[in-house]
Amino acid sequence: MQILQQLIQGLSLGSIYGLVALGYVLIYQAWGVLNFAQGEVCAIGAFSLLVLHAELGMPVYAAMPVAVLVSMLVGYVIEFLSFRPLENANGTTRLIATIGVSICVRNILRMIFGADYFSFPTIFGDTPFQVGELILVPQNLWNTAIGFALVALLNLFLKKTRIGKSMRATAQDKEAARLMGINVRASLTGTFVIASALGAIAGMLIAPVYLFNFNIGATIGTKGYAAAVLGGLDFASGAMTGGIILGIAECLAVVFGSSEYQSAIAYIVLFLVLILKPSEIMSKKKKVEKV
């Protein structure tokens, strides 16, 4: 029972990591760069929801879509100011630019909200209920469900819709896509904005479960990054799988290992993937450099 309970905790934690990872993967596929500001977009989602709901008194179901829109707008601004001007710069330059954006956004959040922690009223209920010996929290279950639903929706969107297809085409080969009459510019921007929306949703799911402050983006961003790398930086399902494996690994580390090393799990994962399967990450880079 103990193990099962830990698995459930790991699953709900992991599905949030997966959502964050999804943002990394989408942007990586389209732009060929890891966007280290992805965690910050989650933070913006969480803080927008906080302001709209807790400060301005908007009902939570109205506040959620507005918070997503705000984050998409912020995503657009980030893309416009730091990705677009560097589109043809080398990989390292662009990577450093995303780190710069992340530090900048984090500190803007700190200037606005201070260093205090915030708690957000539960959306789906946080009164636990028992099934046998298992303790289940509605909010956590919903988080897992929403995480999986978004992956499925994203898959559908990318595979079935025209916009989705042109995004995938752009991700695979910009030149060819351009020759096929696809608006590459719009596809790139669209991918970025969608990744920001996903990040914002991840942030909004974290807010009612955990305490957060301006620094949440850094914490969750690292986990999402590790999950994305573990999932092979491939499309949707890989990111989600990576997230869940990481979430469960973090919980099981406490049971079978020592809690002292729990926070190291994400880094150990990164380390192992880079040592054992560097090709997963390198392949895309090479392709992009060629372009």
Binding site: Q9, V209, T219, I220, A253, V254, Q262
Partner: peptide, 8 residues
């Protein structure tokens, strides 16, 4: 910085 301490 951990957000979740339920495993512990």
């Amino acid at each position: 910085n951990a957000t979740d301490l339920s495993a512990q």
